[in-house]
Amino acid sequence: MDLTILWFCIVGFLFVGYFVLDGFDFGVGMSLPFLGRDDKDRRVLINTIGPIWDLNETWVIVAGAALFAAFPEWYATLFSGFYLPLLLILLALILRGVSFEYRHQRPEAAWKKRFDRMIVIGSAVPAFLWGVAFSNIVAGVPLDADHNYIGGFLALLNPYALLGGLTTLLLFFTHGVVFVSLKTDGDIRLRARRLATRSGVVTIVVAASFLLWTTLAFGTLASALLSAAAAVALIGSFLANLRAREGVAFGLMALTIGLAVLSLFFALFPDVMPASNDPANSLTIENASSSEYTLTIMSWVALIFLPLILAYQGFTYWIFRKRVTRAQIPEAAELPEAAH
């Protein structure tokens, strides 16, 4: 396989991993106002992702590093042209991480409520803006002959991109709520299952609309097939949730997000940043990639370290596989396990 194609696939795989894993983190954070009836409920929700949220977040760092090393022209155009939305994503992620660590530092309800609100914002903003960013990449943006983005921030907020942002927001929310039902017990588990049913209906409609628009306007046969498979998996997750099969529902939600992201990469290929104003200005896997020598060295590094990263991720999930219950949360305002 050509190394440029290989690294396009690796970058796609890393973003699939990030959206699947950090996606349910975002969903759990956004679910606080809906499932957190009191402080103990909110601590249960946070503790479901406490041991793993920071590990999930490292996927975007690895994806960004791989993008920078394998496709420096793509990285430069993306991060300069999409500077404001990517900065907002970064600030939101920082805000969310700080809130996990600081909400327990004082016992006052107002203090905790303030940081809970920041967790919600810090989860919703990236969930929405990642969809906006990737939708614009697939649809194409105006580029000059030097591959510089020549549009403005408001140009990124077009109807297709906004629908893409709403799609990722709803997918991640439902993914997170299903995860809560998988990781908790008692009343909060039942409420999470009911919420996943309600949000699932809306998610199916919005996601199907976005994938259909993508297929008709920008898709290929491969991306169309992946979109169809994603739609089937999403419906399957919804039905599994109705039957209280939380593990199956969560697995199918993860498959839905993975297939949907892959469909966007297949719709994009062989471009990496299409120019909407002039196809001659588009960035492709060929004119955006690093040298053959660089890609060869990176391939050997990936061959060694990617399996280790996946093994460590799987080991971490296995260790923290048990359900979180209200009985495990102490009555006193002590340091929650989730913040360690």
Rank of each mutant, 00 (worst) to 15 (best):
100 F>S: 10
108 E>I: 08
107 P>Q: 12
124 A>I: 10
35 L>V: 14
120 V>T: 14
62 V>I: 12
150 I>N: 00
70 A>M: 07
86 L>Y: 05
118 M>W: 14
37 R>P: 00
36 G>D: 01
117 R>M: 12
113 K>H: 12
67 L>T: 10
40 K>N: 15
119 I>D: 00
58 T>A: 14
23 G>K: 08
96 R>T: 09
100 F>P: 04
95 L>M: 15
23 G>F: 02
33 P>K: 02
37 R>Q: 04
116 D>E: 09
106 R>F: 11
127 A>H: 09
142 P>Y: 09
67 L>M: 08
91 L>N: 13
107 P>A: 05
48 T>W: 00
98 V>E: 10
49 I>G: 13
132 V>A: 01
31 S>F: 03
41 D>E: 01
91 L>G: 12
139 A>G: 03
114 R>C: 09
91 L>Y: 14
138 V>F: 04
147 H>K: 01
129 L>Q: 02
109 A>F: 13
133 A>D: 05
79 F>H: 14
107 P>M: 10
95 L>C: 10
132 V>W: 02
52 I>P: 02
125 V>R: 09
62 V>A: 11
121 I>T: 13
140 G>K: 05
121 I>W: 11
105 Q>Y: 08
116 D>W: 05
87 L>K: 13
36 G>Y: 00
73 E>M: 13
133 A>N: 08
38 D>A: 07
63 A>Y: 09
68 F>K: 07
153 F>K: 03
98 V>A: 10
121 I>H: 11
80 S>R: 10
82 F>W: 03
